[in-house]
Amino acid sequence: MPLRLSRKLKKRQSLPLPEVNIVSLMDILTTLLFFLVIFASFSKYSSLNASALVFGKPSADQKQRFDLRIRFDHPKRATLLLGPFDKLKSSERSDLERLIGREFQREQDGGVKKTIYGKSTEDLVRRLQAVLIPIKKAFPHETGALVLVGDRIDYQEFVDLLGGVRELSPKEEPLTLTTLVGTKETSRVLFPGVSVGEWN
């Protein structure tokens, strides 16, 4: 029995190797590759998302809502307005309250306001983010902001500000946020739900 098996094996080993013709497969691959290379876009594009400012009916309830507005009417100046927030749920509020006491003006409606100046739009965005960070730390669950843009702003400047309100750049250190339930989260996202309106 083992003798038969070894003979069979010997027979198999002595058979010539089967030749697989891969020329047609090569043809298909090369043609596919050619078309993919032709139609592939090697430029990197991405999108910066925002929504239109849509006015609805005023809310009937008197519940306080998170209201963050950024007025951008000059390439080197932006005004940040934060609506009344004393009844809102918040996390680490001490940094924000210290900043408000030091640098913000009180508004009649109970909100606060700060005008930020920069040497360039890039510098302005950096300074704006320095104020947005304590707001985000105090309200980590809030994502919305309203950006009101003036006529004198260029599209590139608008994109710079929009990007800066939405998130921190990859060059910067991510934020450590304490959520309302007390867990820690690391994130670069600030206020991604940006609505765009015009400022006259």
Binding site: Y45, S47, A50, V159, G163, V196
Partner: peptide, 11 residues
């Protein structure tokens, strides 16, 4: 009725 904008940017 188009209220969501995707502004295309270069990376």
């Amino acid at each position: 009725g188009y209220e969501d904008y995707q502004f295309i940017v270069k990376e």
